[in-house]
Amino acid sequence: MKRTGLFTLQLAFTLLVCAFMLVPIVLSVMAGLTRNYFQGIESGLTFDWVIQVWTAYAPTVWLSLQLALACALCCVVIGVPAAYALVRLDNRLSRAVEELLVLPVAMPGFATALALLLTYGHYSGFRSSAGFILVGHVLFTLPFLVRPVMAVMQRSHLPVLEEAAASLGAGPARRFFGIVVPNARAGILAGTLMVITLSLGEFNLTWMLHTPLTKTLPVGLADSYASARLEVGSAYTLIFLMLIVPLLVALQVVSNRLSRGALR
């Protein structure tokens, strides 16, 4: 194939954009592995910073992971039936609810957090628990689960499948768990991965809602950037990337298979 000048130009532009986005990440990762950032890479590579971060901030990593999993669980438990109801109803009310669901995404996280604080702030037990952050995360991530699940449900001829199941003697609960959920599994999986990813990285809301005892990974990251050496912050970023990149890859794989319809 003969490559034209235009192709070369496009390639160069693409590479440039990639570099623009990737170089800061690479530099940050390198900084986290360099003995002394101000002397540069000649000072030698080390895992000291990573280990230091891990000893100081390991609880934030665990909390974030727990939060993300709990958040995904809540979203699935709330979101799948909600998506089902929205698809089944499909009237003006259900469309309004669908719009409403997206509101916490559109609103600045601070505003949502403030609303939560105003409403539940005085229940001090709840306020100081990680559950408070969980509520914020669920609010924020729910539409990211509901949307793909709805999309899959709309595509998969659910009504007639359910009618078939009903004619075979299956009651509503049996139909929901035996037919609806399995046939929406691709959407549920994609949504769950998305929710976990978003929950792990969520900062705005979490920063407002956290207490010194309920620090998540991104909040810890902000802390360390603000208060510790640059290398510490960067090492922290490295740990975060190690968590989030596999998830993003999984997300991509799932959405690829989804668009090919292989998981239908």
Partner: peptide, 11 residues
């Protein structure tokens, strides 16, 4: 019941 669209459970 038998439907025009088969309505088989693909799971």
């Amino acid at each position: 019941m038998v439907f025009q669209s088969y309505a088989l459970f693909s799971n």
